[in-house]
Simulated scan of single mutants.
Amino acid sequence: MEAKAVARYVRVSPRKARIVVDLVRGKSVIQAREILAFTNRGVAEAVEKTLNSAVANAEHQHHVRPESLIVKTAFVDEGPTLKRIRPRAKGSASRIRKRTSHITIIVAPREEA
């Protein structure tokens, strides 16, 4: 029995989000929360929020204690890119790509994963 949470359209580049998500993959939920609390990255807050949502889903749907859960799967997919324009020299313009991410975290009981 797994519980899943997805944070969609997070305004951070997937490359930056993957750095933080790689830190918590395979760890226990308690250990993952500690890692995220002391990670000095802006996206750590969004990842922690997604992790807490997955744990809450496991508690509510499957009546599992959070201490017995581990982060089974965690990955970041690329969301839609917002395209903006920056004025440049001689009347030209260059494109700015504001990337978004979809963060997915799946938690499972320790013996199952």
Results as ranks from 00 to 15, higher is better:
R86H: 12
I105H: 01
G79V: 09
L36C: 05
A113G: 14
H102M: 08
V24S: 00
S68N: 12
T81N: 12
R97N: 15
K83F: 11
S28M: 05
E112R: 06
R110G: 11
R41Q: 09
A7I: 02
E34I: 07
I70Y: 09
A32G: 07
P66F: 04
E78Q: 15
Q31H: 13
V29A: 01
P66E: 07
R15S: 12
K72Q: 13
I106R: 01
A58F: 01
R95C: 10
R33W: 00
E45T: 15
T50G: 05
V29S: 03
S92V: 12
A58S: 07
K16I: 00
R8V: 14
V12W: 02
P109H: 04
M1S: 11
E2Y: 10
R95T: 14
R86N: 10
A108C: 08
E78A: 11
E59A: 04
G79K: 05
R110Y: 07
S68D: 15
L51V: 03
A58W: 00
P80V: 08
T104F: 00
S92M: 10
L23H: 09
A37V: 06
A113P: 06
P66L: 04
A54H: 00
E34G: 02
E34F: 00
V10S: 04
V24N: 05
R99W: 12
T100G: 06
R25P: 01
R84P: 15
Q61Y: 04
Y9C: 10
I35H: 05
V20P: 01
S53Y: 01
A3E: 00
I30K: 14
D22E: 09
D22K: 14
V21M: 03
I103D: 08
L36H: 00
I19D: 11
R97P: 08
I106K: 04
F75S: 12
S101M: 00
A37T: 11
A89H: 07
K72C: 03
T81Q: 15
A44Q: 02
R8A: 13
T39A: 15
D22N: 15
D77A: 15
K27V: 03
N40S: 14
T81A: 15
P109L: 11
R88W: 09
R18K: 11
